[in-house]
Design a protein around this nucleic acid. Structure first.
Lengths: 185, 185
DNA sequence: TCTTTTTTTGAATGATTACTCAATTACACC
DNA sequence: GGTGTAATTGAGTAATCATTCAAAAAAAGA
C-alpha cells in the first residue's frame, strides 16, 4: 500500500513490489491475481484506514462541526513536509487522476470510494444539522461535496514544495469556511 | 500536450507520441532530447495556455473579485463531463501528483508553475485590495493559496464520475467563499 | 546544377514490463 | 513417519519500454 501510495500505479514496478512484500512473483500472483488486483486491495486498505482515522478523530468531539474543523487541521499536520509519509497527497485522488483515462477498473474503484466518503460526510453534516449546529436550510449533500473538495485541495496543495506553516494556514482558512454554515444562536 | 494531459507521463508511450505528433523516433529525439524534455515543453505550453485563459477571462470584468468568481464557474463549465477535453483535471496537478516521488525534474517544473500561479493570484488580490474590493486587513498571499486550493480541488473533484450540475454547484459555493473576504460598504 | 548541411526515417538496441509455470518446499492430517 | 495438499520459488516468457544511429531524403547555399 505504501509503495503504491508513494509511486502510484504505473510508478511501482512488480520488481519493487516483490521487494516490498518480500514475496516472489508466483506467490504474489497466486494471492492477488494480478497487479490490478493487488492495487485494488491496497487502495481498499488505504480507504478503510482513512475512514477509521476520520471516525476516531470525530469521536473526541461533542460537536460534529468542531470535529470536522479539527480534522482539517489534523490532515494538514499529517500532510506536512516534515512528516514521513509515503506521500502528502491522498492515494485515492492520485489514483483517480492517474487512472481515469488509462485504467477503467481502478478509476471506477477510486470513484466508488470517493462516493462513499461523500455520503459519510453528508451523514455527518445531517447529524450536525439535527443537533442545531448548522443553519436549518443547509443543503448537507452539497456542503459535503464542498468539504470533500476542500480535503482534496488541501492534500494536493500540500504535495507542493511549500512550508508546513502555509499548509496549516490553508487548513485554518478552510475550517473557517464551515463557520459560515453554522447556525446563529 | 493533449496526449500527456489525458494519459499522464507514464501513461503516454513513445509509440502513442509518435502517432500523435506524426513524427518518427529520430525526429522526436532530435527536436526534444528525450521524453522528459518533450513532456516539459508540453507542460509549459499547457501552463501558458492556462495563464492566457485566466487573463482573457478577467479582462471582461471591472471588478477583480467578480472576475475571479466568474472564472471559478468558467473552470467548472470547462471541467464538465459533457465537455470534450483530454482530461477534466488540471495537467499541472496531475503531473505534481504523478511525478513527485518518481521524477524529480518534472515534479520541480510543476512546482515552479504552481508557484508562479500563486504569485499571479496574489498580485490580482492585491490589486483588488487596492481598489477597495477586499477588506483592508486581507492577507492576499494567504487568500491566494486558499483560492489556488479551491481551483485544485474543483478540477480534481470534477474528474470524479459526477454530474455537471454538482460541479457547477461546487464552483458556486467556492465563489461564495470570496464574498466573505469582500470589503463591507 | 552540384555540394553541403539539415532533417527525417525506421529498423534495431538493451532494458524493463507484467506475468507464467514446472519444480520445490512447507504444511496438515492420520 | 508417511502421505496428500497447499504455498513458494525463481528462472524464464513475450511484449513493450525509451532510445539510438546509419542511411536516405530534403533543404539550403554557391
Amino acid at each position: 500500500m505504501n509503495l503504491f501510495w508513494e509511486r502510484g500505479y504505473n510508478g511501482a514496478s512488480m520488481k519493487q513490489i516483490e521487494q516490498a512484500l518480500d514475496m516472489r512473483p508466483g506467490s504474489i500472483y497466486a494471492t492477488f491475481g494480478n497487479k490490478d488486483g493487488l492495487f485494488g486491495e491496497a487502495l481498499a486498505a488505504y480507504a478503510q484506514q482513512g475512514g477509521v482515522d476520520l471516525q476516531e478523530h470525530l469521536a473526541g468531539f461533542a460537536s460534529v462541526l468542531d470535529g470536522l474543523q479539527s480534522y482539517l487541521r489534523h490532515v494538514a499536520r499529517r500532510s506536512s513536509p516534515e512528516e514521513v509519509s509515503p506521500s502528502r497527497a491522498c492515494m485515492i485522488v492520485k489514483t483517480l487522476l492517474e487512472a481515469s483515462n488509462t485504467n477503467t477498473a481502478i478509476a471506477d474503484q477510486a470513484n466508488a470510494i470517493l462516493g462513499v466518503i461523500e455520503q459519510s460526510l453528508t451523514d455527518l453534516l445531517e447529524q450536525a444539522k439535527t443537533r442545531g449546529e448548522l443553519m436549518p436550510d443547509t443543503n448537507c449533500a452539497r456542503l459535503a461535496r464542498l468539504l470533500q473538495a476542500q480535503l482534496i485541495g488541501l492534500r494536493s496543495f500540500a504535495q507542493r514544495d511549500i512550508s508546513a506553516e502555509k499548509v496549516r494556514e490553508l487548513a485554518d482558512d478552510m475550517a473557517a469556511i464551515l463557520d459560515y454554515y453554522r447556525a446563529r444562536h
